[in-house]
Simulated scan of single mutants.
Amino acid sequence: MAPPNTREEPVPVIRVALVDDHRLVLDGLVAGLHSPETGIDVVASETTWGALLNHAQFPVDVVVLDLRLEDGIPVGTKVRSLAAIGTAAVVISRHADTSSITAALQAGALGFVAKTESVSELLVAIRSAAAHQRYLSPALTAALTEFTAAPDPGLGKQELRALVLYAGGRSIKEVAVDMTTTEETVKSYIKRARRKYRDIGIDVGTRILLRRHGIREGWLSPE
């Protein structure tokens, strides 16, 4: 019980805006976040970045932002513009690969939550962001730690370029044209690069495995 003649200070409500290009996702988030019990006041839920900027309630304390809105504006640009006006950003995505997480955090996001996570996980991220603290779930933290601790295969510049182009879907012939060299030289670059990866325990021996690794490394978009 509080001592006589004292009053408990009310817990500040966190004003939140949501931006995702799927209205069904937005409606679900609003239902899960907006209530007196959570201390979250969802004042805007928009499907476009422009609509957020023009909303009467903007700026807010925290913006929950989808990683890949189909508007051609890099997420880093959005996060930095929010930070410039004192608004924290929590990025959400159905892709929780290490390259996406790293890109969002390097841009200044204070949280990254996979859409496979629960609303309670997003609540923790929002509250942390509102307190100017970074938050990642234990699973994402472990994945990011494992990624950054991975050994360097020591690829040469041309080996890396050939591997990236090939991982992106180009044929050997197309890679040779892009690199202004012969197909045999490209095959040699790719073979050596794969061997170097194999030597550090990473298998990129098939096109599928190579693409997966390219997404983890940030060479390729998960889309």
Rank of each mutant, 00 (worst) to 15 (best):
I92M: 12
A83I: 04
R80Y: 11
T98N: 14
T87Y: 04
V75W: 09
T87H: 10
A84P: 00
D71M: 04
A104C: 14
A83W: 02
I85L: 15
V90P: 11
S99D: 02
T87A: 13
Q106G: 00
T87S: 14
A103N: 08
K78L: 12
I73D: 00
A96H: 11
A89D: 01
R80T: 12
A104F: 09
T77M: 05
I85Y: 10
A88T: 03
K78A: 07
A96R: 13
Q106R: 15
D71S: 07
A88Y: 04
I85F: 08
A83Y: 01
K78P: 02
A96L: 03
I85R: 15
A104E: 01
I73M: 04
G86D: 02
Q106M: 08
D97T: 12
G86K: 13
G86C: 10
T98I: 03
L105M: 13
G72T: 09
K78F: 12
G72Q: 04
S93W: 04
S100G: 00
L82V: 06
S81R: 15
D97V: 07
I101A: 05
V75E: 00
D71T: 09
S99M: 05
A96E: 03
A89V: 08
A88N: 08
S81K: 14
S99T: 09
A89N: 09
R80A: 13
T98K: 03
V75S: 06
G76S: 07
I85N: 05
P74M: 02
S99E: 01
S93N: 05
V75T: 14
I92R: 09
R94T: 12
L82W: 04
V90D: 03
T102F: 00
H95R: 06
T98Y: 02
T77R: 12
L105S: 02
A88C: 10
P74K: 13
H95N: 13
V75M: 07
G76F: 07
S81D: 14
A84C: 01
T77Q: 11
V91T: 08
G76Y: 07
T102G: 00
G76D: 01
A83M: 08
A84I: 08
A88D: 04
V91G: 11
A96V: 12
I85Q: 15
I85G: 04
G76P: 05
T87R: 05
G76T: 07
G76L: 07
D71H: 14
T102A: 10
Q106I: 06
L105R: 07
S100L: 05
A104V: 10
V91K: 06
T77A: 12
G86R: 13
T102I: 10
S81V: 02
A104S: 15
I101G: 03
A103V: 14
T102R: 15
A103D: 07
R94E: 10
